[in-house]
Design a protein around this nucleic acid. Structure first.
Length: 396
RNA sequence: GCGUCGGUGGCGGAGCGGUCAAUCGCACUUGACUGUAAAUCAAGCGCCCUUGUGGCUACGCAGGUUCAAAUCCUGCCCGACGCA
């Protein structure tokens, strides 16, 4: 080790949760923490200074997207993503493995990585392993057609690591395959075995010791495969771990708990791409230290505002004359300065400021919520906090 | 006063004898969004119901022609422009 250190400050009694401190070359992250997603070296619509100001401690960017534009060479010349985007805090990059899914099977199937009950009846295994024309997976790696211009590109574990070293984040991830939640058992097994081989190759390819490398646990919705994956990935000396892949909404908690019971507790665990309110509580309880998720920023741009009383669609006419903050008592920049009526107007008019203000609020909300979970672990009130918060949130 | 063009659903604007309850855009309503191809996408949008190759009322108003009219004819009302 060396790039990062992780220490546990307090454990959650009766569960796997913990409050910790993660130290990176660019600063400290108090965990559990929510990591805003800045795919293209920008958290869409807001500045890095605003990201910091709203309370975020670390940002995650994406290798596939940065590789396509502006290109890893630019990142390297700039002195790394952080410097390039003028963000001085800790950073991490995803390996591009998620794009195997998002540009592959997910495309055109209307399927997201977390499968909800209502959708479970649709074509469970039917064509579930097919990828779109943009992605082709083989043993050695993945061939992508650029979603931008259709040109062909090749990712292997070695290339992913090389690119991530050029991009230069503090924490990087092994190259994996994020599979569809509809994938059959048989195909899941094959994919998992390959992801394991890719994990070892990623580990072997990693040379920059000022960057931490996290291995990724897969296994879909199969508990035994998840267990097997956790054991295998834990056997490699990664600096930390990501839990990736797809889940059935109902048993995500169980699977995360099962995995975290196996992963070494002295290393940080990152839940990839999870960020709905209920899921964050479950994840923290089950021992997750970091979460990244595009959800809060994306729904913000689409007009959905997170509040303690549930989600609100700012586009609805009911907000037209509400000259009050989105959320009473919220300390974010948006709520302390602007009204629902104003945001409603901005969204109706498709004014850029609306997207900014909504993004600032949603990120503030979710970052502070996870911070509050941390505080609750420390003062032994996590379960009460969870119960009370969710009761109000889910009541709408 | 004469002439020309035009009056279509909340708005703009198609249609110009049947397949039109009426293309399309906007607006509006609802829903989705979980390691970001997303400032995006989907559905609905005359009224009624036993929800259907269902009924009813509709394309300025009133008549007429036709098996059939938003679409053709006549009159009236209204608007724009031109000429007096």
């Amino acid at each position: 080790m060396g790039a990062i250190t992780f220490s546990i400050e307090k454990r959650l009694k009766g569960a796997l949760g913990r409050a910790g401190i993660l130290t990176t070359p660019h600063g400290v992250v108090r965990t559990p923490a929510f990591v805003p997603v800045g795919t293209l070296a920008t958290v869409k619509s807001i500045t890095p200074e605003e990201v910091k100001a709203l309370g975020a401690q670390i940002v995650l960017a994406n290798t596939y997207h940065l590789y396509l534009q502006p290109g890893e060479a630019i990142m390297a010349k700039a002195g790394g993503v952080g410097k390039f985007m003028h963000y001085s805090g800790p950073t991490m990059t995803d390996s591009g493995g998620f794009q195997v899914f998002s540009l592959g099977f997910a495309r055109g199937h209307g399927i997201t990585k977390v499968l909800k009950e209502e959708k479970a009846h649709v074509q469970r295994d039917e064509a579930a392993s097919e990828h779109s024309k943009l992605v082709r997976v083989d043993e050695d790696g993945v061939t992508f057609l650029s979603h931008i211009d259709g040109s062909t590109h090749r990712f292997t574990p070695e290339r992913s690591i090389e690119m991530q070293e050029n991009i230069g984040a503090d924490i990087i991830f092994a190259f994996d395959e994020c599979t569809s939640p509809l994938l059959s058992r048989e195909k899941m097994e094959a994919s998992l075995a390959r992801t394991h081989r890719w994990a070892q190759r990623s580990f072997d390819a990693h040379t920059r010791k000022d960057q931490a490398l996290f291995g990724i646990v897969q296994g879909g919705r199969y508990p035994d495969l998840r267990k097997q994956s956790a054991e295998y990935i834990a056997s490699i000396d990664f600096d930390g771990f990501g839990i990736g892949g797809s889940f059935d909404k109902e048993d995500m908690t169980t699977i995360v708990g099962l995995v975290n019971k196996i992963l070494p507790e002295e290393k940080p665990r990152h839940m990839l791409g999870i960020g709905e309110i209920e899921d964050l509580f479950e994840g923290v309880e089950q021992g997750i230290d970091l979460f990244d998720c595009a959800h809060p920023t994306r729904i913000a741009r689409n007009g959905t505002i997170l509040t303690a009383h549930g989600k609100r669609d700012i586009l609805k006419a009911e907000h037209r004359e509400k000259f009050e903050p989105i959320e009473e008592g919220c300390g974010c920049y948006t709520c302390t300065n602007y009204t629902k009526a104003y945001l409603h107007h901005l969204f109706k008019a498709k004014e850029l400021l609306g997207y900014r203000l909504a993004t600032i609020h949603n990120l503030y909300f979710i970052v502070h919520l996870v911070d509050a979970m941390r505080a609750a672990i420390i003062d032994d009130s996590f379960f009460d906090f969870k119960k009370e918060f969710l009761a109000i949130y889910q009541a709408g």
